[in-house]
C-alpha cells in the first residue's frame, strides 16, 4: 500500500496545486508572504476547507515530503502601523507551547490574548531551497 494511499483524489490534486504555486513563487522574484490566506488565494481554495488545510499541513510536516516550514509574525496591538515582527526560534517555541506565552519584543510585557496577534506563515524548507538552488 502506498504511503499516500490515504489521501483522497481531491487531496492529491490540491497537493499538486500547492507544489506548483510554491515552485513558481520560489523561482520568481516576487515570492510574497506565504500565509494560509495567500496560499488559499493562489490555489483557488478557502482557508478552513479541510482538503486545503490537510494538504498545507502535510507539506509542512511529512517527514519525507516536507517542503514548507512554519514561522510566526507578531502584530503588536499597540502599534497598528506595524508590518509584523518575525518571531525568532525561542519566541516561537514559547508561543506554540501547550502553556505558551509571548513577550512583546518592544515592551517586554506578556501579550494578553497573544494567540490572536500571531499570524503563521510559511517559508520553503531547507530541502526545498537546496533543491531549487542545487
Amino acid at each position: 500500500m502506498s504511503e499516500l494511499a490515504f489521501l483522497s483524489e481531491r487531496e492529491l490534486l490540491m497537493c499538486e496545486k500547492l507544489i506548483e504555486v510554491i515552485s513558481s513563487r520560489l523561482a520568481s522574484r516576487a515570492q510574497g508572504v506565504w500565509t494560509y490566506s495567500n496560499l488559499a488565494k493562489w490555489t483557488g481554495s478557502k482557508v478552513g476547507d479541510p482538503v486545503f488545510m490537510n494538504c498545507v499541513n502535510l507539506l509542512a510536516m511529512h517527514p519525507d515530503f516536507r517542503v514548507l516550514e512554519m514561522h510566526l509574525l507578531f502584530f503588536d496591538p499597540e502599534d497598528p502601523e506595524s508590518d509584523g515582527i518575525p518571531l525568532d526560534d525561542e519566541q516561537t517555541a514559547h508561543a506554540l507551547a501547550a502553556d505558551g506565552f509571548l513577550v512583546n519584543p518592544r515592551t517586554g510585557d506578556r501579550v494578553q490574548n497573544y494567540k490572536s496577534t500571531i499570524v503563521p506563515y510559511f517559508k520553503p524548507s531547507k530541502r526545498l531551497e537546496d533543491g531549487a538552488h542545487g
Binding site: 514559547h94 506565552f101 513577550v103 512583546n104 519584543p105 518592544r106 515592551t107 517586554g108 510585557d109 506578556r110
Partner: peptide, 25 residues
Amino acid sequence: APWQKVARVILKNQGFHVGQGWDDT
C-alpha cells in the same frame, strides 16, 4: 528601553540573568 534589542542587552551586558520578559526577569 525596547525590551528585545536594548533592555535585554543592557542587563545581560551587566551580567544579569535575563528571563522571558520583564515579569520573568
